[in-house]
Design a protein around this nucleic acid. Structure first.
Length: 323
DNA sequence: CATCAGGGCCCTG
DNA sequence: CAGGGCCCTGAT
């Protein structure tokens, strides 16, 4: 594995739209533990790629819910251009949806007697992705048909072989490889890392990205239906993977269409306090109540229970999260 | 020890 | 559009 020490630093500030929730936006406790990001209250680290170059990223909360302000520190090796700095800023704003206009959504939340306490607690939280399309796609493929532990093992194996370790700000943060890095890696070599049939997906997807067949920026502009169509064309991307990408990378707030069996059990408890409610009913009820913000609303309630789980084990939930 | 399902997807009939 | 197969791993 390559290792990169980043000793130089440049800083700037960003002012997210108000209201804003720093920790809810930069840390998602429902995600599986990875070495790609690090977080503590008010502080967040990750690697970010601009073009082919890697930078270290530290983001700190310097504002308040109604007066948002974040400090961004970029760590680099020898030099960094103004254009690169600008692109990083733009990219951060997109990935963490810092310019989001959530007025309509917050109005909707206020009229929801049942879950208003949750919406209020996380007021200003964004749905976000630390990663670009290719990177999140890889993660999503590693989630397929696997338990959390297995996903972690596969991620580590791939990172150890093809990733880069960045050292900055006293942290060690990993970065996912560029798609072309796998050009000369055979499917069998990937299989040897015990990622199973996903080797074929990752090989083919990386090839597509390396050849520039997917334009992430264009995808961000498409409406939901077209974006979904484009994503589903990709080999290894079905309804669930498309949903993840649409919501997290494209910031489509209304993607509550596909419900996986394990999610069904958790939604049944969260929304009905029952072990198993039909997915059609769950979907219809949520869509009826939250309209264009179906997935975003569910995201608030979903992350909230995983935040609670951080300090207090929740029996019924533990059962459904397969470690 | 064997069997099985899993935080899906592709392919076939 | 339903159902089998896929990699590997931990649970039974």
């Amino acid at each position: 594995m390559k290792s990169l020490v980043l000793k130089n630093k440049k800083e700037f500030f960003v002012f997210p739209s108000s209201p804003f929730h720093f920790d809810g936006t930069f840390h998602k406790p429902s995600h599986y533990p990875d070495k790609l990001t690090d977080w503590e209250a008010g502080k967040y680290w990750q690697a970010i790629r601009i073009g082919k170059r890697l930078f270290g990223l530290k983001i700190e909360n310097k504002g308040a819910t109604q007066k948002p302000k974040i400090k961004v520190s970029i760590f680099y090796d020898t030099n960094i251009s103004e254009s690169e700095l600008g692109k990083i800023k733009e990219e951060i704003i997109w990935r963490f949806d810092l310019n989001a206009d959530l007025k309509e959504f917050n109005k909707l939340a206020k009229s929801d007697k049942r879950f208003y306490p949750i919406f209020k607690k996380w007021l200003g939280m964004r749905n976000s992705s630390a990663h670009n399309l290719y990177e999140l796609l890889i993660i999503a493929v590693l989630l397929q048909n696997a338990t959390v532990r297995r996903t972690v093992q596969m991620t580590d194996a791939l990172l150890n072989n093809y990733g880069t370790k960045l050292k900055f700000d006293g942290k060690e943060i990993f970065a996912i490889w560029l798609p072309e890095k796998l050009n000369n890696v055979s499917e069998q070599e990937l299989r040897d890392l015990k990622i199973g049939y996903r080797a074929k997906f990752i090989k083919r997807l990386s090839q597509n990205f390396a050849e520039g067949k997917i334009d992430e920026l264009k995808l961000r502009e498409l409406d939901q239906e077209d974006a979904k169509k484009e994503l589903t064309k990709l080999y290894g991307v079905g309804p669930e993977t498309a949903r993840i990408l649409l919501f997290e990378v494209c910031h489509q707030y209304n993607t509550f269409d596909h419900i996986a069996p394990w999610q069904q059990k958790i939604y049944s408890q969260l929304f009905y306090k029952k072990p198993l409610v039909p997915t059609n009913k769950i979907r219809d009820d949520i869509k009826k109540q939250y309209g264009d913000y179906s997935m975003l609303a569910v995201h608030y309630i979903w992350e909230d229970i995983f935040w609670k789980r951080k300090h207090k084990k929740i029996d019924w939930l533990e059962k459904e999260i397969r470690l």
